[in-house]
Nucleic acid binder design. Structure first.
Lengths: 111, 111
DNA sequence: ATTACATTATATTAATACGTATTATATTGA
DNA sequence: TCAATATAATACGTATTAATATAATGTAAT
């Protein structure tokens, strides 16, 4: 169990709405992988395309969703556009998701 | 930035799919509040109804979704059915969401 | 046992909206 | 003019949600 202070229902609903908005954005495999990749370090679109094997218009569309939700920032360098994580909240969530769903824990000997 | 070990694309996609499945389940304000409430301690349906002001069939429907996804367990005691968190992964995610979206940090004086 | 009531779940439907993939085209910069 | 990226337009299927009604299970009283 987890300790959370008691807050009123309106406040809770407001927070829940903001939270759900982010969660929905994360609830797509392509976007999740994109964020995962970008959270490893700034990446340009063609890097992401190579790394994740998502084809370009889809990639661009989903990156657009991430931008609209404010989860990523962009920076242009010549022909390339570099993406980075803009939301510390998203980063915190990604970190836990990684720990819970991707990290393999070494098994301990019984005893 | 966050440190994650490099894993192959198939494995990543498999993990992403499982992760998205849970995220989708969390991506609804009613369900999120339900989980939040239940993570505070085992609750029966009428408690949840009172606490969250969601009407009964909706409540039951959304609890069904949480059950189907394996996020909650139930236990009957007479007329009442008690819900509790079944997934440590969900609990971990709820904890971070709470920290990131609900917790109010006291402001420090400058300097 | 039967009745009645409280608690929770299920079924059904209607309305709406959403997500995604695809193809084509536009923009920007070297 | 080519490479990198974004946008537009469309089309398809399907998911989401709320609402209403009804069923199932348990308890208590008679």
């Amino acid at each position: 169990m987890v300790t959370m202070v008691d807050i009123d229902l309106d406040t809770m609903r407001t927070s829940a709405a903001r939270t759900c908005s982010m969660l929905k954005t994360l609830s797509n495999p392509d976007r999740l992988l994109l964020l995962c990749q970008i959270s490893q370090g700034e990446s340009c679109v063609s890097d992401l395309e190579d790394a994740l094997d998502i084809h370009q218009p889809t990639l661009s569309q989903q990156l657009g969703v991430l931008r609209d939700e404010g989860l990523v920032d962009t920076r242009r360098d010549g022909k390339f556009i570099y993406y980075s994580i803009a939301s510390k909240q998203a980063l915190a969530v990604m970190q836990v998701l990684y720990e819970q769903f991707c990290e393999v824990k070494p098994k301990r000997a019984k005893g």
